[in-house]
Write a protein that binds this DNA or RNA. Structure first.
Ligand SMILES: [Mn+2]
Ligand SMILES: [Mn+2]
Ligand SMILES: [Zn+2]
Ligand SMILES: [Zn+2]
Lengths: 157, 157
DNA sequence: CGCTTAAGTTAGACACAGTCTATATTTAGA
DNA sequence: TCTAAATATAGACTGTGTCTAACTTAAGCG
């Protein structure tokens, strides 16, 4: 019994989810491939090896795992949802060139923000999505700096 | 000629987009209803009044307006995309109870973040999505505080 | 003006992501 | 082993968005 399988079994146990072969395969794939895969990618991946899982089962399990807090569903660009078994708090970076979604270490926002910008709202969580070019896609001639969402450049960071 | 229509015409002019009746209706609706509507909501809204626009035209215009920088497409929760004619830099808040998407005034991240967390990436823009309960949906008995994305509570802000 | 042409509009077919339903199978526990 | 609840499954179905091919309009030019 490998270290990973014990961990996954325990995760199922504490989440009161039955450790079925299909559910195990979905979570194992996500844990072993931290590339923020889509449901369709996960479906094909778990069907490349045994056991097989239907499309509905992959979706069902992604939902139950997300509800149990064992995976995160990322905000994305209108298209297919992406999933993440990395439960440590972190932000994300989307490469506009190659589409890669990378982890950015967590950092807290300045405490002044909560009081000044968020008003009377109850904020339970937040996430930051950075966009730009990843290390691999970065232009060698040095592109423009960080710009605000209005498209104008500015010394934002 | 109202103030708004002049503004919109000028916006089309500077973006080299023809000011068609349908395109005008789409942008006018977004400018007058800052609730971050979906394409479907915009489609129904512009067809309640004249001029009418087909579904394809609403999608075409949202795309051309976004490409011209006259509207923003928001990151969202897998489902339908939401659009925003508010071009001023700002973040967003999603109420997990009523689904409302509200504006949060812009604020920059601490400059230390860029150097420590983002590595060699070229960040062109970023946006923060807060989640929780809006002022209207806030529990009177005081709910839990802000939690990090892992689901654990913490003094994040 | 009236031409010309590129840009824009349209209905409907199509594609993709995700949900639901009805039935079969599996798991956990007594 | 037996039973009930959870889970798996194929395929129908829905919502969201894209594409195509024919039609219409805006803008520039003489
Ligand atoms: Mn991640
Ligand atoms: Mn907004
Ligand atoms: Zn890249
Ligand atoms: Zn609300």
């Amino acid at each position: 019994m490998s270290n990973l399988s014990v961990e996954l079994e325990q995760a199922f146990q504490s989440a009161a989810l039955r450790p079925t072969a299909q559910r195990y395969a979905v979570l194992e794939f996500l844990a072993g491939h931290p590339v923020h895969a889509t449901a369709e990618e996960i479906f094909h991946a778990v069907n490349r090896s045994d056991p097989r899982a239907s499309r509905a089962t992959v979706y069902n399990n992604l939902r139950s795992l997300a509800k149990a807090g064992l995976v995160r569903e990322l905000v994305s660009e209108g298209k297919a949802a992406r999933f993440d078994a990395n439960l440590h708090p972190h932000h994300h970076f989307l490469c506009e060139n190659c589409g890669a979604v990378e982890d950015i270490p967590w950092f807290d926002l300045p405490s002044a923000v909560g009081r000044s910008a968020l008003g009377e709202r109850v904020v339970r969580r937040y996430e930051i999505l950075f966009r730009g070019h990843c290390d691999r896609c970065r232009r060698p001639d040095g592109g423009p700096g960080l710009v605000k969402p209005d498209g104008n450049e500015g010394a934002v960071i």
